[in-house]
Computed example of a mutant assay.
Amino acid sequence: MPEVIFPGPDGRLEGRYHPQKAKDAPLALILHPHPQFGGTMNNKVVYNLHYAFHRLGFAVLRFNFRGVGRSQGEFDQGIGELSDAAAALDYLQVLNPNARQSWVAGFSFGAWIGMQLLMRRPEISGFVSVAPPANMYDFSFLAPCPSSGLVINGEADRVAPPSDVLKLVDKLKTQRGIEITHDVIPGAGHFFDKQLEEMTGKVERYVQSRTAVEDAS
């Protein structure tokens, strides 16, 4: 898969881009966990999400936030990272001007950034939020949440406790015009060590069902 370097708001950003032959292929941007706790675009969850979307026919980009790997800049408490994500989506859209859909998927810290990007970019039609850290970050900006999506987390997650994720999901489900699907993986911790394949399979089935309906309409 080709390595790419593209311009970000605070210098160059390093990514991995996996295109499709179809010119109208949908797009997926994948966002990694917290940079200060070892999060990179090569995290196993991020890597598996990347290939899950590509198997479904998406042109996919994952990248390192500022200060990670070969990406320039320094950690910016989420503010700069949101700008990085917007720049990455811009880059992906320039490469695929005829894309019929755009999705964002994020894991942990990346889920928080992804949901904020969702609010800024009305062209994003779907999202996957894996283990959103609702206990650490304020998600009240999702008012209203503009798109339907999947929230998936582990039953034994001690980093992002299931009770906090459930409160977030319940709040989102009260909003009209969207549908939030919530899936809990039994026995799984924050990194889905033994349940990675199960988690990825659930994501694939959800995205496949959504895109099939939207392509048919």
Rank of each mutant, 00 (worst) to 15 (best):
101 Q>E: 09
15 G>H: 08
90 D>Q: 15
71 S>L: 07
160 A>Q: 06
103 W>S: 00
109 F>Y: 14
130 V>S: 04
9 P>D: 12
139 F>Q: 10
207 V>F: 04
39 G>L: 11
10 D>V: 13
200 T>R: 05
183 D>I: 14
93 Q>R: 15
185 I>H: 05
187 G>Q: 11
38 G>Q: 11
69 G>R: 01
105 A>R: 03
90 D>P: 00
25 A>F: 07
110 G>Y: 13
123 E>M: 02
86 A>T: 12
187 G>W: 09
6 F>H: 03
74 E>H: 14
192 F>K: 02
121 R>Q: 13
56 L>F: 10
117 L>K: 04
87 A>N: 09
32 H>Y: 09
164 D>F: 11
113 I>D: 06
191 F>N: 09
128 V>P: 09
32 H>L: 09
107 F>T: 07
14 E>L: 12
101 Q>W: 01
29 L>W: 07
47 Y>K: 14
134 A>M: 03
39 G>N: 13
101 Q>K: 01
197 E>Q: 06
23 K>I: 12
55 R>Q: 11
84 D>G: 12
79 I>A: 12
83 S>R: 15
191 F>R: 10
177 G>R: 10
48 N>R: 15
117 L>P: 05
40 T>W: 10
196 L>W: 10
16 R>Q: 15
5 I>Y: 12
155 E>H: 08
162 P>Q: 09
143 A>S: 15
34 H>C: 04
133 P>Q: 11
75 F>I: 05
33 P>W: 11
187 G>C: 14
53 F>V: 00
54 H>T: 08
43 N>S: 10
148 S>M: 06
37 F>A: 08
56 L>M: 13
7 P>G: 02
54 H>D: 05
198 E>N: 07
101 Q>C: 01
47 Y>G: 00
127 F>Q: 06
72 Q>I: 02
63 F>E: 01
210 R>G: 00
41 M>W: 05
6 F>V: 05
144 P>G: 10
171 K>A: 15
157 D>T: 12
139 F>L: 09
125 S>L: 00
185 I>T: 04
107 F>I: 04
214 E>K: 04
7 P>R: 10
132 P>K: 03
203 V>D: 01
185 I>D: 06
64 N>M: 08
92 L>S: 13
24 D>N: 14
205 R>S: 14
114 G>S: 07
108 S>P: 09
199 M>F: 04
186 P>V: 08
1 M>H: 13
211 T>F: 08
182 H>L: 03
183 D>N: 08
124 I>D: 00
26 P>H: 07
56 L>T: 06
168 L>V: 09
81 E>P: 07
35 P>V: 03
41 M>C: 05
107 F>R: 02
5 I>L: 14
105 A>D: 08
